[in-house]
Amino acid sequence: MKAYRKKKKYLQTESIVLKVYDFGEADRIFTLLSPSNGIIRAVAKGVRKPKSRMGGHIDILSKVNAYISIGENLSNLSQVEMIDNYSLLKKDLSMISIGFYLLELCEKFSVENDPNNDIYQHLSFALDLLLSCDNKNLLTRWFEINLLVISGFLPELYTCQISGTELIEGDHLFSSINGGLVDKKFATSTDNYILMDKNSIKALRFLSNNLWDKVEKINFPKNSLDKLRIVMRKYIQTITNSQINSEKFLSKVR
């Protein structure tokens, strides 16, 4: 009698390597972000050995064309072609630290087997831009805010999250738990608010509504961008319910 063998599924996809960790004696598990399948976790056998043919073609923070054999528990990386190694970016520690941060954010906002071309294109665009962009702080803020837009987590910026009334121009409070701005009149003493001045609120609204080609032409005040960094860190931590590990390293090498 002919033995029954389950047919293997293969997948070929462009992807960006988000995370890597060692597995077994000489293997590595790669977390890839693909436009067609979202997050894919795949093991690359023997990739840590110097003579591995795959080792030089794949590393964290690189864009690859991956050939994956889909497994029941863990998929296998059978072949990899490097598309972009971002080698110039990898020569600068501050750019590496920003790169790590962008990768971690994308991992937090993506799920396995859920196609999300928008997140992939957003990351790919930001990584391509990172080297040539003069204002990396602005690019990072724009990336964070638009990642929230794509994922459907953009905080409410026009109406008070407690009273539901429209906010008038001026300073307001940002509440991560309530998911947006709160009028100072309605603030409760228990919530952990961040005071946002008028300019920071304007900057946040502008960044959330515009593409990079418009954003890069605006000269945002440094203190507004610093305020947005604090607001975004707190808000992202609240909605993902976890720490952004690479943020600490980013602050250290900045």
Binding site: E104, E107, N245, S246, F249, K252
Partner: peptide, 10 residues
């Protein structure tokens, strides 16, 4: 080694 994504800093 430093691996910020895995929470390992300097």
């Amino acid at each position: 080694s430093i691996s910020p994504v895995n929470g390992i800093g300097p």
